[in-house]
Design a protein around this nucleic acid. Structure first.
Lengths: 193, 193
DNA sequence: CTCATTTCTTGCCATTTGGCAAGAAGCCGC
DNA sequence: GCGGCTTCTTGCCAAATGGCAAGAAATGAG
């Protein structure tokens, strides 16, 4: 298990030079999480900024009735952590769970801050991670308001087809903002076409 | 028009010392926008990081059918800008419009970056602005998935009652993810209780 | 391979929300 | 104060989605 993927991923963001990428990567430690295990449990403080190299994770919260709601999926090349808990050092309301066996590289909050202070390029990278997450969520929110469940399903199918191989439909349904029953019906409708 | 509000707002975030706050505030310029005017029009690059001191603004996008969808409201003490466009220097898909006569203080992207490089405290402040925006949106998204339109309406009424004085219901409706017709009916229902 | 569990689908019916159009109420410029 | 425009409400009906429960299909442990 080498850090090559991590380094090239940092580098190909066009923000970090290869030299800095190597320097940054030195700080990361290897972590593997087996299927169904938690990277973060609600109530704890998110303290691992995990670059996911292999596998798939999901973030989920509970609604007032106690039902699980999947709020995000994390695929290789993305960073898994809970923004609010991580940066504000507060207890997370969300859980992050491995949907498959996962491998990746992580740093702690303290390490991340040290890197931010010493390496402007990594600051930029960190900002771009935040900005991308924010932007993606804005897009999803707009989609939630303006598109039907069927349209959102089709978009997800085109955008992140991998998820359908990795996650049960009930997780995908709550991510889309519908019940698994409705998702099943939507899939049936689309088969006809 | 003095910068006192700006300075104290920077300071009371508990991130920026009073000295730094004063130093940061020096970079900001005054800006007033009259009702219905745009701080940002779709197609342009967001280049003003505007601390709103008075008034109320809204951010809106268009859906595929061309309808306006209000994606956010900005109240005094908040920063008005479009994250993705501002940081990625890309054309904005969203508009930011004054709902009332507005006043505030702004810096450009260049100024913000200079401040970020020279003042770690302002970097922290900038990060907290991003993190709060992100967190608020996550909360809204969860609410959109797990609560009914009526519940979302009541939450908004408690959380940001000012908006109901300042924005027409049709803007509030699309922000809540419903039509103005449905919002009208929800209000009628709640009157009965 | 078998049993138990989880996931997915389906039928029936209820609830929520939307579309359209008409009318009422409120606001603005002159 | 008088139009004219925008905003808000309402009635009627349609479409989208949910709730529940039963059964089928897939998956996983031993």
């Amino acid at each position: 298990m080498t850090k090559e993927t991590l380094i090239s991923s940092l580098h190909k963001s066009n923000i970090v030079s290869l030299t800095s990428a190597t320097q940054i990567a030195e700080q990361f430690d290897y972590k593997s999480i087996s299927k169904n295990q938690f990277l973060l449990a609600a109530g704890k403080v998110s303290d691992e900024y995990l670059f996911l190299e292999k596998g798939c994770m999901r973030t989920f919260a509970h609604d007032t009735a106690g039902n699980e709601v999947t709020t995000n999926f994390c695929l290789p090349g993305q960073v898994a952590f809970e923004v609010s808990s991580f940066f504000n050092r507060t207890r997370s309301k969300e859980n992050i769970q491995a949907l498959t066996d996962c491998e990746g590289w992580f740093i702690t909050y303290e390490q991340l801050n040290n890197l931010f202070h010493t390496l402007p390029e990594f600051r930029e990278f960190g900002r771009s991670v935040l900005v991308r997450g924010f932007t993606d969520l804005k897009t999803r929110m707009l989609s939630m308001i303006t598109e039907t469940a069927e349209e959102r399903y089709e978009i997800l199918l085109q955008t992140k087809p991998e998820i359908f191989q990795l996650a049960p439909l009930k997780y995908i349904a709550s991510y889309l903002g519908i019940t698994d029953t409705s998702l099943s019906r939507i899939r049936k409708e689309l088969l006809k076409k």
